[in-house]
Design a protein around this nucleic acid. Sequence first.
DNA 1: GTTTAGCACTCAACCTCTCTGAGTGCTAAA
DNA 2: TTTAGCACTCAGAGAGGTTGAGTGCTAAAC
Lengths: 347, 347
Amino acid sequence: MALDNRKKEVLQAIVDDYVATCEPVGSKALIDRHDFMVSSATLRNDMAELERLGYLEQPHTSAGRIPSDKGYREYVNSLMKVDHLSDEEGREIKEKLGQSFDEIAGLLKAASATLADQTGYISLAMTPKLTSSYLTQLKMLMIEPGKVLVVVVLSAGVVKNRMVRIPDFLTQEQILQISNAVEQGLSGLPLSDISLITVATAAKDNQKVELPEPLLNQVLYEAYTAIKQADNLDVYMDGKHRMLSLPEFSDTKRAQGLFDTLSHDGLVAGYVDEVTKEDEKKEYMIRIGQEITLEGLEGCSFITTTYNVGGKVAGNIGVIGPKRMEYSKVISQINFVRMMIDEKLNQ
Amino acid sequence: MALDNRKKEVLQAIVDDYVATCEPVGSKALIDRHDFMVSSATLRNDMAELERLGYLEQPHTSAGRIPSDKGYREYVNSLMKVDHLSDEEGREIKEKLGQSFDEIAGLLKAASATLADQTGYISLAMTPKLTSSYLTQLKMLMIEPGKVLVVVVLSAGVVKNRMVRIPDFLTQEQILQISNAVEQGLSGLPLSDISLITVATAAKDNQKVELPEPLLNQVLYEAYTAIKQADNLDVYMDGKHRMLSLPEFSDTKRAQGLFDTLSHDGLVAGYVDEVTKEDEKKEYMIRIGQEITLEGLEGCSFITTTYNVGGKVAGNIGVIGPKRMEYSKVISQINFVRMMIDEKLNQ
DNA sequence: GTTTAGCACTCAACCTCTCTGAGTGCTAAA
DNA sequence: TTTAGCACTCAGAGAGGTTGAGTGCTAAAC
């Protein structure tokens, strides 16, 4: 059964008011703050009906109503008015992200900081998923005997490096030969196709490399690990501490549950990944309250979106806030930041 | 006026009990839990005296006493029994830090995580102060036309790198010439002696570099920035969220004040630096309550110590916890971790 | 059928009052 | 100097009462 127009307006008004005040909304207050052309008794009937249908909840008999997860969902799906960023806000974001960044990591850090600042909630920025990107360069730079810096460059413009140990007596020359051989053999190959075997094949096909097998293998193993490690997702998160000032987290237990989970980057990244796949065709992923299957985030809402680098390769940015979130505002803020990232990355 | 022996014992017992329970300690409870050979009335007199002298405080008339900052200070300075780590704990730490680390950053991250785990408080690990270290290598690796990875290697074994932009048309060959020239001219020089001018001199003294002045300067500027940036302190902090479970932070306001400050790495690092200088000759820096001049940390205690790399170059590790902290235990934990770091770095 | 006025009802929040008990300070005697 | 004893204090818990925002229901009006 669909909601009639007035009920929709009532639900919308209740969500708006509750978001603004964090207090249960009663029929009287609703009349006062909005131009309903009916009496409070009528609204009471509507509210009772909305509660029966599961869109509203009552903390206790003599209190007003608050939106349920289902209520928020309905609001987000079809009721909220899409907000435009004020010029002011747009300008602020542009200012913070306007400078030039030499590495994608720097851009994402700045994006995360900006998003946290602007929304006042927790922001999230993840490096691109690199599975579909390919290796473009592999350099090995001898720092001192036995210590080599492996630099991996991927098609998405991602550069990662890692210090590894190798046998002391190998020379820069030998290392150079190996890295050149591997680079020649593997560049252009998707990361997912690179295995210890392909690395070894690449090195051995190249005649110039002349080293005893076990030694060679040791170096190749380190190169392989460095390449694979370049695939690791980095997660930048800001604004956690701001959540403590929200009334919904005045209970330390809740805040602790949230922080416990958020301190495991991997958990969050995995969840975002999973949910992004579910909502593949949508511009945004929105999860509200109990819809979120991460422990400790049941009282939150989670909005993410995807930025693009070149073709397929993409990462996520997002915001975690209370269910009582200014959805439309946050969405437009995320969107703006995403556009900025896209622009920077694809210019 | 010095405290007589019994008063010292009383103070010590009160601190121990309060640390264990977080409840004000009364004369009766003190008699029950310790073997004082006197009556509670006598202890009451002692406690009144200790309060008059400022070592104890009373939350309200009909409550027991809690240690004041001065009381904790006396306890730390001369009363506490120095604890030895249990074999169990030592083994756990060794296990976590036992693996080999290729970079100092990795070691410090692990140290911070371990310290947070073991103490249950907030841990801190800072990269070495590099002002007294010198440049050993400077490499520039062309990633793609216009983009160069500058790798800076310092005497302390610190390797930092930074992606920079240069004019498109410079070749790998030219870049190599420049970096070689700079490296030759500057290697062995303390970081503090390196300026834009010395960089430029190094490059220009080398005959091989043949580039129009403005172009060359642009590249040199980037190299200089990369070198200077290698000096940046990194701060690793873990275990923040655990503080929320302590009774002293059940009030969200306090927790927020703490987290606000801790979210500024720089503030904390600066403070540690400053205080380490004050306590230069001591093995540990300990600051209690109001002694800490960082906003939001007035309810905490802060313990740090210094690890060494080679000679002078040194960084700090530390723990931030409630004033009601198991001082001796934390100190031995920090100490153990410091020894592990020293060992790893100087082997 | 929908809307409204009116009224009885509910219940968290707040206040006040009392009681309890842990803990104190003081005094006078040992 | 130490101790026993006693009067005193005060936070915290519990009981009782009041308030007021908010509800649901009913019967009349539209």
